[in-house]
Amino acid sequence: MLLAAVDYYRPDTLDEALEALVSTEGARPLAGGQSLVSILKLRAASVELLVDISRLEDLRTIEVADDGAVRIGAGVTYDEMATSPDLHQSYASLSNIAAHTVDAQVRNRGTFGGNLCHNDPINNFPPVAVALDAVMHVTSKNGDRDIAAGDFFTGYFANALSPDELLTGVTLPALDGRSIGYQEVEIGEAAARAVAVVATSNGNIESANVALGCLPIPMRAPGVEAALAGAPTTAEAVAEATASAADGIEPLTDADASADYRLAMASVVAKRAVMEAIEGGHHG
């Protein structure tokens, strides 16, 4: 309604979509449109051609491998993640996160891939992908490539894709008994967020991946991870190990919260995420 004039194309096949992306200057994929359309309404981005990938069946599947790894198509909506029996069985915490993302209207249209590619600092899945060491599957007319989640996010609203590339899906490795904690300080969407993937054994932490969100680039906290490895699963030990979670991060200041506050919250959400993982994982 209030968009600048823009061409729209809904290809029937992935190949047609890739062709459109490579052949048109200013082409951009449109999935659920829950962020991109708002930006276009504000006329804050200039796009010549919207390539609507939301109905490409290739991008809309959730596949669980025998080993427990999950491949989620980039075009899978939050609602489909929330209601997929397969995902709920293999990755219940991820289902729960999707089930509580924004509101029903957005969940019906917003997509997993769109959330990742858009990389708004308030988006919920970038730190999840980073914490899980997810593999991002990318394709273009020049072929396929995989990008590690840790290399995928390159800055505020930016990712490692070139204009002719498309994220087709994301593989999340098998959890193998690990649990996911997901904690945030909710101001609007969130002002601080942490994701922890933790394996425990006999009252000790075997391994822990900890990623912080609400940042231009979601970041792992290697110092925290090292301190957690082998630590007891007690609240005291986790608090001590996560105390340095803010090291090296550079959060933003906006109307919701200052960078100072977000720095202080990093260890709070990290601790809570790890404890939640220890206690069985995120239930939403």
Binding site: V185, I187, A191, D256, A257, S258, Y261, A264
Partner: peptide, 8 residues
């Protein structure tokens, strides 16, 4: 009194 103000 949003969270940050109360936290301070």
């Amino acid at each position: 009194n949003p969270p940050e103000r109360v936290w301070r």
